[in-house]
Nucleic acid binder design. Structure first.
Lengths: 115, 115
DNA sequence: TTTATTTATCGTATATTTACGATGAACGAT
DNA sequence: ATCGTTCATCGTAAATATACGATAAATAAA
């Protein structure tokens, strides 16, 4: 690997951080729960379950859509939002791979390094 | 469950979002990789591997420390940073539980809901 | 056609994040 | 005691995120 590359961020690192960003607000965590567990899909229904204004919820939905975690199907004036389970699976894999990678280094402790 | 509770965020939702926030920057994703895989622990060593100034890296380390993903042991003028593997495990569990919960709703598709 | 419903977007205010240079504090080495 | 090294913190600028009211667009219902 080229020496300078070490100082850059990889695509994997950037993508993982981007997904984490999409999950970095309680409202978005909750919206995904709602969409995956309740027979609910319209923006207005979600608004009724959150302590936020409609415009704000719409913004959060947009952020989740941006990274593909949900998709919206427009039906006239309404929009039906649903979890994109394919993305969820891909994301689950990426995250668990990352966390496993971290855990592999468990033998490297502060005591080992300080020497 | 009380009716108003639905409109609030739970502690679990807030905590999960908070961890996601700590992971929402490529630099912090990479710092955790570095600390878990290389025999590296000092701030200066990490700075050498990132395209960021020392002050900025120090800030990112602070954020990772805030949520307990790393810990720092001061040794005179130096500080030895290490991954906190206990936290990593707890976080891994929380995240995988959450993603499993989402995946359980897979039968609830847009088509089902629209009807 | 008019009205009501639903949602996205605009405008805007405020808060937070990110980044960096400069500086100070802590210590080891000379 | 002075100097060099290491790192955290301060000050600050710029960018991004969060929140909401107002409004526009789309359409169903009257």
């Amino acid at each position: 690997m080229a020496k300078t590359k070490v100082k850059e961020f990889t695509r994997g690192e950037i993508e993982l951080a981007d997904v984490a960003k999409a999950l970095s607000h309680p409202a978005r965590i909750k919206i995904l729960k709602i969409l995956s567990s309740l027979n609910v899909c319209m923006c207005g229904e979600i608004v009724d379950l959150l302590p936020l204004a409609q415009a704000t919820v719409s913004q959060h939905l947009k952020e989740l859509k941006r990274v593909g975690l949900i998709q919206g199907e427009i039906e006239g004036p309404k929009t039906c939002y649903c979890v994109n389970f394919e993305t969820i699976k891909k994301v689950s894999k990426k995250i668990s791979q990352y966390l496993e990678l971290l855990n592999k280094g468990e033998n490297i402790s502060c005591k080992t390094k300080k020497k």
